[in-house]
Amino acid sequence: MADAETSCSLRQELCKGLIRENPTLVGLLGMCPTLAVTQEAKNALGMGIATTLVLIGSNVVISLLRRVIPQAVKLPCYIVIIAGFVTMVEFLLHGFVPELYTALGTFLSLITVNCIILGRAELFACKHTVIRSALDGAGMGLGFTLALLLVGSVRELFGAGTLFGISVMEQNAVSVLTLAPGGFFVLGCVIALVNRIAHREPPRTAGCTGCPNAATCAASKGGCSQ
């Protein structure tokens, strides 16, 4: 498979994932963890960093193996590689940051099916060089972390009155924000805010079905790629 032509500079590869193509706030991907682990800002940060590590690792390995993996088993191969990195991050957290490991719980393992990682693998890493893939992974991961931090900070600050554990306004907290409904609500408002700032009309569907790649990737018999 020939490598894709790209006119982006290396710096642009890194930065595009931060704001302009932010995977969660613009691409509307990876919303499960964004809703689930953002009760507290420090968990949000931890999840973001863990996902970024997996993203960089999987992008690099998939890019390295891009000429070797056959089309027919592309998706299972990517999934196995991603699962491998997720498990390694689990080891690291369990041994060195156990509070984060317990706080993230099942969602740490669920990084495996985070649409962002599989999406970047199929959309980018399999067609670009290792360096570019690593930068792309880093940029997207950091963008995801930013989105998580934003939602997490709002939820913790207004829901529990603390920020990163430091008490700020505990008297006026609206505790429903730290529960399930609050997650949906805050994320909706944040995305609406981003749309307002960017003056754009968002795609009406989220995740795989809204992804511009949906037609081609379903056709390539691998399923969702974003």
Partner: peptide
Amino acid sequence: AFKGIPATL
């Protein structure tokens, strides 16, 4: 600004 996903959320 809310049209689409934000309203859904």
